[in-house]
Amino acid sequence: MNECPCGSKQSLAACCGPIIDGQPASTPEALIRSRYSAFVLGKLDHVERTHAPEIRDDFNRAEAERVARECTWRSLDVRRVEETGDEAKIEFAIRFRRDNQDMIQAEVAHFRRENGEWLYVQGDLNPKTTQRNVLKVGRNDPCPCGSGKKAKKCCGVVVTE
């Protein structure tokens, strides 16, 4: 199986693949995941196409193409999704390696739904977010993703490289 780069553990064809190929993303999270996957796969037409019209011409595609190739993309971590009507806010972090350095970049991205399609409007890099109380999920607790498995057997699985 060709696993989707976004980390969903699904196949690319069942996850970001069709969205990158032009199908509208059903949720803002699906859009941010597919945009990340598009960077990993170097398919930046999708990134450019899903920018809101007011920032589309601001996109430095040449730079994005270079960066997409220069970086080794490690992972996407979607931390929080707030959807209200036709607007949404997603907090996420990406990990990548560049110039022999491991980097992590956090962003709060804003989205808008136009004619049924979610678009990326704006991103605040490395934002100062309000502190949150995080519930610790024990290894043997049910996985918060709702799979019904224990966390240690599901999303909480520890991968040692």
Binding site: R61, A62, E63, E65, R66, R69
Partner: peptide, 10 residues
């Protein structure tokens, strides 16, 4: 190096 990559794309 960086600029060359970008100019080649443009």
């Amino acid at each position: 190096t960086r600029s060359l990559a970008e100019m080649q794309f443009l």
